[in-house]
Write a protein that binds this DNA or RNA. Structure first.
Lengths: 160, 160
DNA sequence: CCTAAATCGGACTGAAATAGTCCGATATCC
DNA sequence: GGATATCGGACTATTTCAGTCCGATTTAGG
């Protein structure tokens, strides 16, 4: 038993790579540069960047002098979009990922409305933070008592 | 690529079993009864009930005529507690599960505060719904447009 | 052209988490 | 004593995740 309701490392890594890209939005960054900056092995970073480009969050330029750059303004890319791009749809259970009506028993299920509410709250939490937010300010935690540390292998190496 | 930010099936099953128990809070329910009611194989239901008892959410009585009953009032048991009991701590990434100070690089990490906020929002969403809520009323979804169906193998069988 | 620098697309492997089962031991009621 | 139950933990199979690798393709520059 480990932890639950988590995003994958790929999404975590992806966030870090995107923060790097957002630091210099105009420039084209080769995957190798981003990988070393983030402290990730090139194959891993490459895989993630590929997918982000495929999902439309990044633009890619092939060939010598090529690389990746942000497709949109950092302020218009929210965390939900990034996580969804890398990890797939966000849902508490598999069935919540399917569309409406998918469940013919919905009528008799008293829990339904509650799940919907919870699901929506989570989604909103992820939509409420943009890539621009992530870069710029370290928002001061309101509660100082239980300030929670943020650590991940990549994130450690990432901090220059 | 499937879905992300999900709870395990055990937690899902556990919720269903608990709803059954909450329907008749006073009574003692044998695992076999709960299993058939929920449409789960007995070993599976047994495993889950065992853990819920071990975590203090259920009380158990052994021997003939024994079974499980709620340890507390349904209104005092929230979804977060149930999920935590069955799936372990709730956190977006492994590092968020650890306590404070665990990250010596926190000072340089601009994303820190944001993660904390998101994490807290998710936790609150799960703490805001109690077992009593889940039983009683089907809260009407505010947004009708994208009414989301709730389905899971067990949940289908569960609906009497 | 030709070579070097890059991404593209997908297959592939190993490790870990999950789902689910099974069994022997123990407690309780009749 | 026998039937009914939970207890505790080991055990297996399946899926998911992390991470790697390779051949193909595109582009810049000499």
């Amino acid at each position: 038993m480990t932890t639950v309701l988590r995003i994958t490392k790929q999404a975590d890594y992806g966030l870090i790579l995107l923060v790097r890209l957002a630091a210099e939005p105009g420039r084209v960054h080769p995957a190798a540069d981003l990988a070393t900056a983030a402290g990730l092995p090139l194959p891993m970073a490459g895989k993630i960047l590929k997918r982000l480009a495929h999902e439309g969050l990044l633009e890619s330029q092939r060939g010598a002098g090529g690389g990746y750059s942000l497709a949109r303004d950092p302020a218009t890319i929210d965390v939900a979009a990034i996580v969804t791009a890398l990890d797939g749809p966000i849902a508490l259970t598999d069935c919540l990922a399917h569309g409406p009506e998918e469940c013919d028993h919905a009528a008799g299920c008293p829990t339904q409305g509650h799940w919907h509410r919870i699901s929506q709250a989570i989604r909103q939490a992820l939509e409420g933070v943009t890539l621009a937010d992530l870069c710029r300010p370290a928002v001061p935690p309101l509660v100082r008592l239980d300030a929670i540390a943020v650590r991940t292998p990549a994130r450690e190496a990432a901090r220059t």
